[in-house]
């Protein structure tokens, strides 16, 4: 199991990009932290979600 935004998830083995796409995220409007480290956008397709990962997906909405 891993945790994504505080919730338990069974997405072990999926790439980050697959997960984001499957859950309807717009990758141009977010930042992802994995175990406290920023994940570079060009690595989304290569990073595989691992057991024990703490993933934080920060989605931005417009307005400023």
């Amino acid at each position: 199991m891993l945790r994504i935004n505080g919730e338990e998830s069974a997405a072990v083995g999926e790439t980050l990009l697959d997960y984001l796409t499957a859950h309807g995220y717009d990758t141009n409007r977010l930042a992802v932290e994995r175990n406290g480290e920023i994940v570079r956008k060009q690595d989304y397709a290569n990073v595989r979600l691992c057991d024990g990962d703490e993933i934080e997906i920060v989605s931005f909405v417009g307005g400023g």
């Binding site: 141009n28 409007r29 977010l30 570079r40 417009g62």
Partner: peptide, 26 residues
């Protein structure tokens, strides 16, 4: 103002300036 610009800045600063504090809004 734009979500895409927010994401670009946040990703860029976090990737390139690990010693910098970043305070964003959404």
């Amino acid at each position: 103002d734009r979500a895409e610009d927010k994401a670009l800045l946040v990703n860029g600063v976090l990737e390139q300036f690990p010693e910098t504090y970043l305070v964003a809004a959404s």
